[in-house]
């Protein structure tokens, strides 16, 4: 068990390091840099063209004239030693401030989406498997496929239209107007939670549909296994039997996917967040990538990746706790 965890942990550290390299290289890949971006923006807005000397000065100022590996080294050193993620060219602030402003929002939406997905999908999946080919199963299958097929941003648009048309107010953002710029307080938290469920459900809906199908398929595989028959022949009540044996077995594959759910939730969140004007990390990351605001982009990518890796580690640990075959072999 401990050996298994130690090995997993080593992999995790190594993976994070690889991610730092990849995310840094990735954001360097598009042609040009932030300075080219400024220049083209000034030209398009009718401003003067900058002299090459001034451009060079700017590059030197931001450290963009140094080779990539030097930039990478400085970036990583500052993160590890000082927790600094670099400077946002776009917002003229510390990148870390922008990230810490946005990440908790993303994390809470992700968390609630995740809860929503599991709370809704697992019971429905179990029902659909146990009552296979019943009317209920067909209804949920139908709804599930619609949920899979409809992109979440479309749902967001439909929702915007409905809230505007019938309730007279566009339910956008994560806060009511009166709290938007206020510091955190109990009232603001309540207000936040009131707004949270809408994007959480929209982002989660596609995942819910998928999870229902997977749970149904997993459980159908388990329901006819001999150990279920053994348990039934002992005289266990049917519901207890269902949860203790086949559902328990069918759940294991899910636990191992907890880690991957996070990036898919964040990716699904970007467009919904833009539509609903949510102050989460998705739109900022999207913009930073467009503007080549490299330290903000790299910081987000790094943090999201690290969260994913940690999520995977947690699901590995959970799996080991849940499944003795992994723990002991």
């Amino acid at each position: 068990m401990w050996k298994y965890l130690a090995r997993r942990f080593t992999y995790m550290v190594f993976t994070v390091w690889v991610i730092t390299v990849i995310s840094f290289v990735l954001i360097q890949l598009p042609p040009g840099d932030f300075v080219t971006n400024i220049v083209s923006r000034m030209i398009s807005s009718g401003g003067r063209e900058l002299t090459p000397e001034y451009e060079a000065q700017l590059r030197a100022l931001y450290g963009l004239d140094q080779p990539v590996y030097v930039q990478y080294y400085k970036w990583l050193r500052n993160i590890v030693l000082r927790g600094e993620f670099g400077w946002s060219f776009e917002y003229r602030r510390d990148a870390v401030e922008i990230i810490t402003e946005r990440m908790p929002m993303t994390a809470s939406i992700s968390f609630f989406s995740f809860l929503f997905v599991w709370i809704v999908a697992l019971p429905i999946g179990i029902y659909s498997a146990v009552r296979q080919y019943s009317i209920g199963d067909y209804v949920f299958t139908f709804l599930g496929f619609i949920g899979l097929a409809v992109p979440s941003f479309l749902l967001a648009l439909i929702f915007l239209y409905i809230s505007q048309r019938f309730f007279g107010q566009a339910m956008i953002g994560l806060f009511s107007l009166e709290y938007a710029d206020k510091p955190w307080s109990w009232a603001k938290v309540v207000d936040f939670l009131k707004h949270l469920w809408i994007p959480a459900i929209m982002i989660g809906l596609g995942g819910t549909a998928g999870l229902i199908r997977t749970m149904r398929a997993n459980l159908l595989d388990e329901l006819n296994k001999p150990y279920v028959e053994t348990a039934r022949s002992k005289g266990l009540p049917e519901f207890k039997l269902l949860l203790k044996y086949p559902v328990r077995h069918a759940l294991n594959p899910f636990v191992s996917t907890i880690g991957w759910m996070l990036p898919s939730l964040v990716a699904g969140e970007v467009i919904v967040a833009i539509v609903l004007n949510l102050p989460t990390s998705g739109p900022v990351l999207y913009r930073a990538l467009q503007q080549q605001d490299m330290y903000v982009a790299a910081g987000f990518i790094l943090l999201l990746s690290v969260l994913t890796v940690i999520g995977t580690f947690i699901s590995d640990v959970l799996l080991a706790i849940l499944d003795p075959r992994i723990r002991l072999q």
Binding site: K225, P226, Y227, E229, T230, A231, S233, G235, Y245, R248, H249, L322, D323, P324, R325
Partner: peptide, 17 residues
Amino acid sequence: KEIAMIFQEPMTSLSPM
């Protein structure tokens, strides 16, 4: 209790969990 049963597949008749 009054009627018990054992099965063909001892490998899968017990839950590995």
